[in-house]
Design a protein around this nucleic acid. Structure first.
Lengths: 206, 206, 206, 206
DNA sequence: AATGAATGAGTTTTCATTCAT
DNA sequence: AATGAATGAAAACTCATTCAT
């Protein structure tokens, strides 16, 4: 009845699920909890998604549908590899900022065994690797060097993500409150780290 | 009755739990499953651990008891920072190789909300940060620069871990079978990446 | 939209229900399943039949409306009892062939407890017995000999029906594919069995 | 606690299930109902039988384990076929009297589609047919005459069973109260019907 | 130390039905 | 006539835990 409530029920279930899954994990959340939080009748979950696992499937698809396009136009030949890289990092951070819970949830569920979604995961990660190989080449990394290939990309992602993953801990321990300038410097730090190594990073006492 | 079965039941429960938790997550595993796999009567779990969450607590303590000491003697002033760093990476990789499932499990459960263990997590992570600050300083990173501090360390860990986390996917997609030489090169790659950036990495077509 | 689809929805619901009930039993079929198979909106079932049990009622009435008349003119005094009997068996087999699923379904649901239809069942079975008593008398069976009366009639029906009831099993085990000549011989066999006993049956190796 | 309650819980579940299934059909009975009637905790059903369908499986096995042996020693060469037949009918009626609900239930569920038990059904019915072929031969029925073979046996069973199947209806309509002498005459009637046909039956006005 | 049985609250899923449009 | 959404109750099943032995 409240205005924010009145997106359709289906979407509310998805939103609530993402939030809860990211905090407690897929198996740690019950459908009752989802239905309550989403102000939706319990049976609607089966009605719309054919059960709890249907929500997970849909979230995965939804995620990759929005995530993969980020890697589509990162190989602008007119720009230096460094510039391309910086643009990519910027886009990634922006995407994660806009979809923090979604991203965390997918990242956390990715290695877990839920048979019904393993096919989706395999297919989409294959696509992702395909898209990344172009940029790798520009950095002189041979995609056939599979070990190297499988280190740099995932490392970048998880390096960026770590900050969001540990947000509660970090905020509590360091009293950091992220604002726009925080993320600007964050982007620079990540770029420096990957382009020049730790020694390239400029420390700024806050 | 079989010889290998006859480590004590308590340890078998822990081992099986670590394996299962790492694959399905803590909430995704039931005590019955654990008892079956460990060839132990169901009631023994409560008997030894006071319930399921007791296993989790014990695993966390067990993990940090072995993990934190790695960071104890990494500040040998007689060595260059680079050498220290390389030694640390080597130790970390060795530890993860020796305790892959344990490490993955802890890493995955870390950001999830299980109230009964949140205190343990907070305390132990505090200890970890304490230990890391020394090495940071030697690299010219001001521990008071909290953002930077909170990026580099976790990034390193997750960069290393990514390879293990995505093991099933990576093995399937790249047909990599890790052996001793694989991990040697793996160590070098990670070190180069963090010390000199992507451009420092030497590609080797396999 | 397809031509065969365009009998009215009401009839489609009935047809589909008979087919499903005969395979899974009344309680084993859900209204959703019926609605899907009949290409009808779920709510139409309540609209037309006042709920699931309404379908069952209607099917029972529909069945007896067509089944009972078979027994109306089986007492032609100009014919021998044997001829009358043979004619009856022929008619019954024909009816069952034409309405196999309907007959099986009713036969199976008959002894089951569905309170809402028990009245219908009692009333109609009473009518049936009434109609059968005439033929019995002609065979020298006293309708007052209630035990005998209650054996012969039902035995005949179930003897005939068994073949249809076990159709899947029989077809699988004996590789019998029923055609017109099959049913002709089938009729003769049943008649011989009831008129002369097992010894009267002429075996034909196939 | 009561004396009759104190057979073990497992058996009580089976007994209650048979009684309920025979009245309402397998799909018409809920596990809650079973648990209540058997004075057993709901979870015990999964504990002992792995779910509702496990009860059905066990009942089928239990039934055939006791039913099939009836057909083991019906081919005593020292006796006439008629005597053999009479003995068989007697045994069958006795078995059905002793296990009325069990028999009715199995008979009713036999043609219904419950995928989890279809294999059991096929296997056991195969065994039954095997056992019956001996007796058939003695009556001059060629087991290769598959149509005939598939009529006489099942007809006999269902002819006998009909009386039990329609017990409630028959009792209500005919005021028959079955006692020992009733079943004696019942046996004779069935035998006469199958050995000599309707005309061989001696009517007795009651 | 170990077991099998039992418990009760919890899980997900399905049910037949109803409603506003 | 017809629809898609919604409902609440009940379905089957699983959960972690406990207890008497």
């Amino acid at each position: 009845m409240a205005e924010v409530e009145k997106q359709n029920a289906r979407q509310r279930i998805l939103d609530v699920s993402i939030a809860l899954f990211s905090k407690k994990g897929y198996t740690g959340v019950g459908v009752r909890e989802i239905a309550n939080e989403a102000n939706v009748n319990l049976a609607m979950i089966s009605y719309y998604f054919n059960g709890k696992v249907g929500i997970l499937k849909e979230i995965f698809e939804y995620f990759f549908d929005r995530y993969l396009p980020i890697f589509d136009d990162i190989n602008n030949a007119a720009l230096t590899p460094e510039t391309c890289f910086r643009q990519l990092v910027q886009k990634l951070i922006q995407f994660i900022r806009d979809n923090t819970e979604l991203f965390l949830m997918v990242y956390n569920e990715l290695p877990l065994d839920v048979p019904e979604v393993s096919e989706i995961k395999a297919k989409r990660i294959g696509e992702l690797i395909q898209k990344m190989s172009g940029m790798m080449i520009r950095f002189g990394i041979d995609p056939e060097d599979r070990q190297l290939f499988s280190i740099v990309g995932p490392s970048l992602i998880s390096a960026i993500l770590t900050q969001f993953r540990l947000r509660p801990v970090i905020q509590h321990l360091f009293q950091i409150e992220p604002d726009e300038s925080y993320y600007q410097r964050y982007t620079e730090t990540i770029c420096s780290l990957f382009l020049e190594g730790v020694s390239g990073i400029k420390s700024i006492a806050i």
